[in-house]
């Protein structure tokens, strides 16, 4: 099987990340969708109502007055001079966006699998192999050992993803492009560790 040129991969990933943001009005995060599905199983469906505009303003004002009373109506002592109140038509619409349901997550993962399948078919055909395509890997691990190593690697990736609150799509693609400090650090950590580990393994197995 021939891999696609790296630059086409970059264009495709950018198109998907930007397209997701434009169509969904939210950042693409694959592990975030997995977390949402797991949370649904653990904690049940999200019962938050979709609030917007006047009903959200009214609910917020009532909750604020109930929590702070008259203090809420006084400007904070360190606050700058309040800006003139914009005309109602110019005010941004207040909205609480309801999280996507499991159907949307399932559709996303279905598209992910179909996209991967199309990609390999266009590149020369589907080939399933429990291997890392390295002579050293194949020499070192044989039979069920290969599956065990790949499973362990997958578990480590999942653990790291949960620990840092994101994966290569959320941190690496979307977070880094937005210069988010946590994403820059996470991406530097997992890419740096991957590079060092691959060199170390190559040296150890040489």
């Amino acid at each position: 099987m021939q891999f696609w040129p790296w630059y086409l991969g970059g264009v495709a990933l950018t198109t998907v990340a930007v397209g997701h943001w434009l169509l969904m009005n939210r950042m693409m995060a694959v592990s975030g969708r997995v977390t949402a599905l797991v949370n649904r199983v653990r904690f049940g469906p999200d019962k938050a109502p979709a609030l917007s505009g006047k009903e959200l303003e009214d609910a917020l004002l009532a909750a604020t007055l109930a929590a702070f009373g008259d203090e809420a109506l006084k400007a904070p002592p360190t606050a700058p001079e309040p800006a003139p109140e914009p005309a109602p038509s110019a005010r941004p619409q207040l909205t609480l966006t309801k999280p996507q349901g499991p159907g949307m997550h399932a559709l996303f993962f279905f598209g992910l699998a179909i996209g991967g399948l199309l990609s390999v078919l266009l590149a020369g055909g589907l080939e399933v192999s429990p291997s890392l395509r390295g002579a050293r890997f194949e020499a070192l691990f044989d039979g069920p050992g290969r599956y065990a190593v790949l499973l362990l690697g997958g578990l480590c990736v999942g653990f790291g993803t949960r620990m840092t609150g994101g994966c290569t799509s959320g941190h690496g693609l979307c977070g880094v492009s937005r210069f988010q400090p946590a994403s820059l650090l996470a991406t530097a950590a997992f890419f740096g560790t991957g590079i060092v580990t691959s060199f170390a393994v190559a040296l150890l197995l040489a």
């Binding site: 949402a36 938050a48 109502p49 609030l51 909750a63 929590a67 309801k98």
Partner: peptide, 18 residues
């Protein structure tokens, strides 16, 4: 705690409702 945070949850624990 790794728990889901409802979009309508206020910092004091109150849930915004219609």
């Amino acid at each position: 705690k790794g728990q889901p945070v409802p979009v309508n949850l206020l910092p004091n624990g109150h849930l915004l409702e219609k």
